[in-house]
Design a protein around this nucleic acid. Structure first.
Lengths: 231, 231
DNA sequence: ATTAATTTAAAACAGTCATTTGAATTTGAT
DNA sequence: ATCAAATTCAAATGACTGTTTTAAATTAAT
């Protein structure tokens, strides 16, 4: 009979705020209370409108995917592979280190990467694959045709993990290791270094004949990664 | 008057087991109950003998430092910088990936690195500094005299963060990215790759004139690192 | 004014763990 | 054998941290 519409507005505010808070803190650390307070609504609203924190998170992702997926792969398309590599690395690092101006999607993506909620596994691959492919193409362009698929992936790992230091190392530790404050200028120089370092690395992989003189035995793989996904 | 000695044995078992469990799970995830069960003693024993979980952890570290600090820097001393670099990387990765046979110290060290308890800050620097210096020396040997201190540290970061992928990326994700199971052989090849890649990277840094043609603006630094230390 | 949709504050609930307690047991000395 | 101190034990106690319910109060549309 009676159809009030004012609830929609609350729901909307909640969803939007959830995007922001989840993007800022990640699924695990974002508290329902945080979101509600920041949205200016009652704690009970989450369950009233979404049933649970989990579904709120999923809906937040969906909302961001539909409305905010800015072109992060962006303008990396033109120019020589070398230039593209440099730009790609810069973009990566920028996403990893940028302050408040970074897009919702990038941060949500990043937080999910750092410690996964385990709720996005379906969509996850579709999201990262285009990015991976682009970097792989760039690497292939530099390494040349003689490098096998595995070599490309090795290089991909080398590069991505250099960039990920901004995510996996605490800022204070990074400053300790570099013995100076992590100002934007320093980040820029580090990005440049990574580009140079990686360019040379890729080229070396491209020119190498296979087979190495020394290769002692290695241990067996054991998982040591971070926190388990939420239940 | 009465001096029972059987308590000493319990305390000893507790301490030893604590070393193992802390080494396996890290401070946060290791539960007092875990340790006690594994040691075959009552839960109350921890507080009876050590007062708290915190002091047990500190004593465990101390015990390991005194008795188990195997020479992890090991035999990296001899040979050309190139060979030393390769061996250093192999050792690092071996420590990061090895299974049950890895030393207590290495794993404890590793766990503290991955998510710090915040209880070891004093001893921490003294522990890692020798390792850092060794790698830096190797890098300097390869890069040559023209590379400044910052360049050396950049290279250090590049290398360490490539090796740290085994710690910062879940094993399953690594396998997904490489599209094959993470067998010891694959780890060995990846270690070789990292050595080659890095060697070329360092050399490139050594030969480069400073100044880069393209360098767009970068974002400002923002902490995105993992869990905060325990209270 | 009625009714269903919202909002609210407070409580309940669910987990996880470290730590305490107080009684029971063992030990070693007398 | 006996006594007291040292040790063990199972169970309880808290102390958190957060999500989800609840039931009553409020509001908007008819």
């Amino acid at each position: 009979m009676t159809k009030r519409e004012d609830g929609k507005e609350t729901r909307r505010r909640l969803l939007i705020t959830a995007c922001e808070v989840f993007a800022e803190k990640g699924y695990r650390k974002a508290k329902v209370a945080d979101i509600c307070i920041q949205a200016g609504v009652n704690v009970a609203s989450v369950n009233y409108y979404f049933g649970s924190k989990q579904t709120l998170y999923k809906e937040a992702w969906q909302h961001v995917l539909e409305n905010f997926q800015e072109p992060v792969l962006a303008d990396t398309a033109g120019g020589s592979p070398q230039r593209r590599l440099r730009r790609h690395i810069q973009t990566l690092i920028q996403n990893f280190t940028a302050g408040g101006d970074i897009g919702l999607f990038s941060r949500l993506y990043l937080m999910e990467m750092v410690n996964p909620s385990g709720l996005m596994q379906d969509a996850w691959h579709e999201i990262i694959e285009p990015r991976r492919r682009e970097l792989q193409d760039i690497i292939r362009g530099i390494a040349g045709p003689d490098v096998g698929e595995l070599g490309i992936r090795f290089c991909e790992l080398s590069i991505v993990n250099q960039c990920r230091m901004f995510v996996t190392i605490k800022n204070s530790d990074l400053e300790y290791m570099l013995d100076q404050p992590l100002k934007p200028d320093l980040i820029k120089r580090l990005a440049d270094h990574i580009a140079d370092f990686s360019l040379a690395g890729i080229r070396a992989v491209g020119t190498r004949r296979d087979g190495h003189p020394e290769a002692p035995a290695a241990g067996c793989g054991t998982s040591l990664a971070g926190d388990p996904p939420d239940p």
